[in-house]
Simulated assay, not measured.
Amino acid sequence: MKVFFMINVGRRASALPPALLNEFRAAFEGAGVSVEIVECHDPGDCPDLLRRAEAEGFDTLFIGGGDGTIHSVLNVMTPGAFTLGVVPMGTVNAFARSFGIPLRPMAAVKVLLNDSQVVAMDVGRVNDRQFLCFASVGFDAAVVHDVALGKVKKLLGRLAFSFCTLRAVGRRARLVQFKVEGAGFEQQKGHSLVLSNVKNYAGVNLFSRARPDSGDMEMVVFGPKGLMPLARWAAVSMSRSGEAPTIAVKQFCVTGERLLIVQLDGEPVTLEHSERLEFETLPGAVRVLLPRAKR
């Protein structure tokens, strides 16, 4: 194993503490693994860094960041070039929470190096964009866009999503309707659709049936009768009394009369021709390191 460890430090001027970097290097040295640690301050630098890593023979890519960082890497790396290891250093860290990766970066590195296995994980694709963890269309995606626009995520962390959801419910924001075709039903109208490849969504285990290598993803669609069904689904999912009403899907289409709001892996995205969204699951499209004890 030859590891290229890329850490998303954002646009802050200061680098990571030298003590933490030394701890990382010591962990790799103790496991007998060669590593190069690179701090990435600008997402625009990511493609060049990955091309260099591939050219220099690195076969494993450790990503230090959150779910959005994973998303960015997935969409610029050469398919099949690396096995991915996720070191949670973001806000929600849904990927890490779903698979039992320790939330402390140093502990995560040790687990990935010493007690992990390679899993061929499914990848989702919508139009020309890929996602690894989850996606949503409509109201839920609008909340993610609202979180990204201001400083609320930095101030409130994971609670930012709950805050923006309540604010949006209060003003009944963006209840844009769409139609879903395929996925086991002829046609269904809705105002919010959530699709997940992992158990954890917005910091809570809402998709208990999701499996990383099942060949499909779990989806729930909320109809045009207001927002109460969404609240009931979240309540059932967070309780121990039953299963939330999700459906396993491989391929389907979402259409709207105007451009639809989309988020992928917790990142607000703008897709061309988003009035028609073609979703599909790509089975086993990326190799990831996951803890042996939990998948």
Rank of each mutant, 00 (worst) to 15 (best):
M1Y: 03
V3K: 04
F4D: 12
I7A: 14
V9F: 02
R11K: 13
R12N: 07
A15S: 15
P18T: 06
L20Y: 12
E23W: 02
F24K: 00
A27I: 05
F28W: 02
G30F: 02
A31M: 12
G32M: 12
V33I: 10
S34M: 08
V38R: 11
H41N: 10
G44T: 07
D45W: 06
P47L: 00
L50K: 07
E56G: 03
G57R: 08
D59K: 04
F62G: 03
I63H: 04
G65H: 06
T69I: 02
H71K: 12
H71R: 10
S72R: 10
N75E: 07
F82G: 13
T83P: 13
V87L: 06
P88W: 00
A96K: 00
F99R: 02
F99Q: 00
P102Y: 04
P102K: 00
L103C: 08
R104L: 12
M106V: 11
A107D: 10
A107F: 03
A108S: 06
V111M: 06
N114R: 13
D115Y: 05
D115M: 03
V118H: 09
A120M: 12
D128Y: 02
D128Q: 11
R129W: 06
S136H: 01
G138S: 08
D140A: 14
V144W: 05
V147A: 10
V147G: 05
A148L: 08
K151I: 04
K151P: 06
K153S: 00
K154Q: 13
K154G: 12
L156T: 04
L156K: 14
G157K: 07
L159R: 15
A160I: 07
S162G: 12
F163D: 09
R171L: 09
A173Y: 07
Q177T: 13
F178P: 05
K179F: 12
E181G: 15
E181A: 15
G182W: 05
G184M: 00
Q188Y: 08
Q188I: 11
K189Y: 09
G190N: 03
S192Q: 04
L195A: 03
S196Q: 05
N197A: 09
N197F: 06
N200S: 14
A202P: 01
V204L: 14
N205E: 11
N205Y: 14
S208I: 11
R209K: 15
A210T: 09
D213L: 14
S214E: 11
M217K: 12
E218V: 05
M219N: 03
P224I: 08
G226C: 04
G226P: 00
S237F: 11
R240L: 13
R240V: 09
I247S: 11
V249Y: 08
Q251W: 09
Q251T: 14
F252W: 05
F252D: 08
C253M: 15
V254H: 08
T255A: 13
R258V: 12
R258Q: 13
L260I: 02
D265R: 01
D265S: 01
P268V: 08
E272Q: 15
S274Q: 05
S274C: 01
F279L: 04
T281I: 14
G284P: 01
A285N: 05
A285R: 00
R287I: 02
L289M: 03
L290K: 00
A293W: 10
K294H: 09
K294Q: 08
